[in-house]
Nucleic acid binder design. Structure first.
Lengths: 223, 223
DNA sequence: TATCGGATTAAACGCATGTTTTAAACAATT
DNA sequence: AATTGTTTAAAACATGCGTTTAATCCGATA
């Protein structure tokens, strides 16, 4: 059947186009040109532009979760290991490795300026994902820690991961290209972010740091 | 003179409109309606839409820096104090307190999708601001620390601050409204973020934490 | 083979946009 | 009071958009 093929080609082209240009700027004409189908095909298969957009966002999320899934943990998996793997997965999804960059860019658009498509994202992806992180952090904090403190730490994790993707283009203007290529890989970034959090929570000794940074203090003596 | 008044009214209205709708979505007609001037005034004063946009971005940056300036430090100001004040200032600018929310929203748009207006932002604001942060962090790290490690930490600071603004709307969907209002104030967030960084750098003892979280370890002994 | 229904196409509609044009209003100067 | 240069105003222009229409294609069915 050419039916599914056409529908899927539109979905793919729409995802790329919406990710690049945003909902309003992306034109149905451009999407159809890229997909190699007639203009009327969008209305035929999806009704209108908005419903096509919503389907494209859902499509992107599903792809993203498949391509960078969370590992499965047992009850004996240490929280530190879970945190490191969580950060690595989140960064992989953010930086779209592996995968096409348009998927995450489309999702980030929804995060920055939520539309109708966002509700599904929060329900199906963000909320459960956030809860997993909160549970991991809880394991590493005193049972009496107030919920909002756990939330603060969770957002510190997500915030650091989010930044590298969202501010991609600014980064290339602030930091040397070669340094970015060598030192800002998914692996190195996730190691750094995990270290920041684990040290902050007191779950990492100075000696085990990849780059020990705390060997002197500004107002007192050196070690 | 009504000249400046008209020009400034356009600039203000354009800032708000561009911040809300983005460059392409904001219409000259809406801007002029909001400013109470004729449609042709934009072309008369700014030439075209794009130059109006660039001026509006510059305008927003200048306002933001005036309303949330960095404090002046002496050579004897401790690095920890400088970091805390830096984070507080950055968060103030991000969350637009004090000030109208449109200013930062417009700038964040430029960060996410740089246009011609971005070059000026980086040169005049981001690069110097980033350098100040790097210098503060350097004071707290061994002299032999590689530059990219300092950059990692600097981006950890900025990333955490950035997140609360960028993901404003998602936060309200993930976290209870009352908790947000009470626990996610500029002061509390900046304290948390500073604590995360200072602890990570080994410049903060557990006892001085606002919410001591590291009273247990999962796999080894406590300090 | 004839027919029927879903899939595709080209063309057109109505509308909103950025920009330009042309004229009017205004203030300052002679 | 007349004139000049600057500012405001309304209308029109060309363009590109999302959507709809009506005709055509084409494979499965009888």
């Amino acid at each position: 059947m050419t039916t599914d093929s056409t529908r899927e080609r539109i979905l793919q082209a729409a995802g790329e186009q919406f990710a690049t240009d945003g909902f309003a700027q992306a034109t149905i004409r451009a999407i159809c040109r890229k997909a190699g189908v007639n203009i009327a095909a969008v209305n035929y298969y999806f009704g209108d532009k908005e419903r096509l957009y919503i389907e494209a966002v859902k499509h992107a999320r599903r792809l993203r979760e498949k391509q960078a899934p969370l590992p499965t943990w047992t009850s004996s998996t240490p929280a530190e290991k879970k945190l490191r793997e969580f950060v690595l997965t989140l960064l992989r999804r953010m930086l779209c490795e592996p995968g096409d960059p348009w998927q995450t860019r489309l999702i980030i658009r929804e995060i920055m300026e939520p539309t109708k498509a966002c509700e599904e994202l929060v329900q199906e992806a963000f909320r459960p994902f956030f809860q997993i992180l909160v549970d991991i952090l809880r394991e590493m904090m005193p049972a009496t820690t107030p919920l909002y403190t756990v939330h603060h730490w969770a957002l510190s994790v997500i915030g650091q991961c989010f930044y590298y993707r969202a501010n991609e283009k600014i980064l290339t203007m602030l930091i040397d290209q070669e340094e970015l290529r060598q030192q800002f890989t998914v692996e190195k970034l996730s190691e750094h972010i995990s270290d920041v959090i684990l040290r902050g929570l007191g779950h990492l000794s100075s000696s085990s740091l990849s780059h020990p940074v705390a060997t002197l203090r500004s107002n007192d003596e050196t070690a």
